[in-house]
């Protein structure tokens, strides 16, 4: 077991989830409650990481974050380090790659709240913030949990984008999925097997939890 790779993957997954959750709540809510010109294009753009080959996404991220890009140069001027082949660059890539996993469950969950319930809250005197806290969030929490679990486990298993943007620097950008690939290349199937089993079981449990919570939420709402 490559412990440093596992710890790095867990750190990346936690950081990605933390950064993406507020973005997912805000964007998911906007998409659920508002109609605007170009909404379908925004939705398509958010879905893109689901269907695009990770190497393609990784390639464009490499360009966007590279030393020749404005973002890469600004980062280098600020921190003295390059954005690509670093944990920070990996985090940005991971956030982009996971957008649909966070936003889509939250959008569906907020859509499920329905306009009548929000209007009933407003007429009852609840401010928009109180309506969010007392009505929208408690009803959308299965979606919130799905977003957290899916983002976290998906980040753990990320391979293509991580390899393109981060390379495989031990302790810095070599995540568990890349470590598995390295072990297989080195004919160390025992280590690859243990790490693969870990990812398999944790991913299975995560998805089972999401389904379980979804079913419970349906029962509660009657």
């Amino acid at each position: 077991m490559d412990w440093s790779a596992l710890i790095l993957s867990l750190q990346l997954a936690a950081a990605t989830t933390l950064v993406l959750l507020p973005i997912g709540v805000i964007l998911g809510r906007v998409l659920a409650f508002h109609d605007f010109r170009g909404k379908r294009w925004v939705e398509a753009l958010i879905t893109l990481p689901l269907v695009l080959p990770p190497t393609v996404l990784g390639y464009y991220l490499l360009i966007a974050l590279g030393v020749a890009s404005p973002l890469g140069q600004a980062w280098q001027a600020l921190t003295g380090e390059t954005l690509v082949f670093s944990f920070s660059g990996l985090l940005i890539a991971s956030v982009v790659f996971n957008l649909p996993f966070a936003i889509q469950p939250l959008q569906r969950a907020f859509e499920g709240v329905g306009p009548d319930l929000r209007q009933a809250a407003w007429v009852g005197g609840l401010s928009p913030l109180a309506t969010f806290r007392k009505v929208e969030l408690p009803l959308a929490w299965p979606g919130l949990l799905s977003a957290v679990v899916l983002t976290f486990t998906h980040t753990l298993g990320e391979f293509g984008v991580v390899l393109m943007v981060g390379g495989a620097i031990p302790g810095e950008t070599r995540t568990i999925a890349i470590s598995i690939y390295d072990r297989v290349q080195a004919f160390d199937t025992a280590a690859a097997g243990i790490m693969s089993a870990f990812l398999l079981i944790s991913s299975f449990l995560a998805v089972a939890v999401v389904y379980g919570v979804g079913a419970r939420a349906v029962r509660l709402r009657g």
């Binding site: 329905g114 009548d116 319930l117 209007q119 009933a120 809250a121 007429v123 005197g125 007392k134 009505v135 408690p138 009803l139 509660l220 709402r221 009657g222």
Partner: peptide
């Protein structure tokens, strides 16, 4: 400050 009874009642299910 109006009282509104919605057609489907719009009670908070939770």
């Amino acid at each position: 400050r109006v009282g509104l009874v919605f057609q489907n009642y719009a009670l908070f299910p939770h």
